[in-house]
Design a binder for these strands. Sequence first.
DNA 1: TTTATTGAAATCGTATACGATTATGAGATG
DNA 2: CATCTCATAATCGTATACGATTTCAATAAA
Lengths: 227, 227
Amino acid sequence: MSGVPKEDRSAAFFDVYRALREEILAGRLEGGQALRQDDIAQRHGVSKVPVREALRRLEMENLVEFLPRRGAIVRSVSDDDLLEMLDIRVALECRALELAIPHMAESDFELAQAILDEYQASPDKKRWSELNRRFHTCILEPCGNRQLLSLISDFEQRVGPLIRLRVTEVTGLERPMKEHRQILQSCRDGAVEDAVATLRTHIETTKREVAASLRRRHLQKITAADQ
Amino acid sequence: MSGVPKEDRSAAFFDVYRALREEILAGRLEGGQALRQDDIAQRHGVSKVPVREALRRLEMENLVEFLPRRGAIVRSVSDDDLLEMLDIRVALECRALELAIPHMAESDFELAQAILDEYQASPDKKRWSELNRRFHTCILEPCGNRQLLSLISDFEQRVGPLIRLRVTEVTGLERPMKEHRQILQSCRDGAVEDAVATLRTHIETTKREVAASLRRRHLQKITAADQ
DNA sequence: TTTATTGAAATCGTATACGATTATGAGATG
DNA sequence: CATCTCATAATCGTATACGATTTCAATAAA
């Protein structure tokens, strides 16, 4: 499910890859920031060779960008990029759910329900996004399409950190919970189209929230500049 | 549209990357075959460093696999992998079409029609897959989602070569052409749901054809083993 | 004949080395 | 005071070097 290839975890380059990936996804590295190969190598106690391997993989993941003769920089995610990723998420998650429902067993429903119950009981906003992720994983996983699940996981890892604060805090628990319950019920009923339709609305609402938030931020920047 | 990142085309590693990618996608390298780093380096007149960079990128693309302390091998695509990719294609292309239709201009319809006309006129089976690809690209491109188009292109490049002989030759021109015309007409009418439904059927039929073909091949292997 | 042993060759993963290009900063020039 | 050399330092991209592990084949043992 992780999206990150599992093989060869022992190699030196993998530590570098993992660390850099984590720092970029967590937003601890600014977009556009130069990734000095010698620095990274020294920090990890290795040479430049494994560092470059790690950077090339991150380049393929669109997390870093190589500028000819000037090395790698952290790729910045534009507002448009983010919205594009959310549209792709709609496609991937809806398809996964559609394929998953016919394979769901009673235990899947129970697990999903348990997550929703915990969701409901938890007063901790920080847990919400974790529980949200688990619910989505839980209902999509039965699709059995590993590559699809891996893709979804990749996008979640990239998109999640960027929208979490922006959405979870603002939206509250009411609406998403209602949609989650509705999706689960449709899954129980084997109502594929209903479930997918609700999931689609669910994600598209998120996208609209993000878009609105970005709009406001943009507006703020403009008016601030005018002052 | 190519899926292959465009930056840094000048670097030595890029030639290696490009060449290996092409060889793997074209099927000129068997699945499981070892990719000897020194050999590749010598063939391209470079050292192992850029070769390893190329291999790491291909690993991220799922085209090669690193075995600890045994280097890289060409990743073989199982029957299940192939069917999984076709399911993902359904998700991606349907979403792209859905997003594309509201943005289509008259010139898009004309271009699509021109491709279909050429399709119809061409007696050359080898051209069919090329024209098919161009038609799909043409109706999806207006979606404006670069990442989505790039993903679609990646999957097309991986899946295409594996199913072309298997499907195009067998299926003939009748059914796909009829579906293509129907999709285009729905696009003209702005009938998003109809267009998407037809496209979905279109790809799912392909998937069923591929699955059937694989089933027969598998059966043949079993009966051959029994002899 | 088949299976184990073992030493040489091949190959990997990574460190080090180095020419080439790009950033940096001090002093010259307007 | 701004800005324009140009030498120096920093950094890149890649080649070469090397210990460690794996493969392989020839020989010994069963």
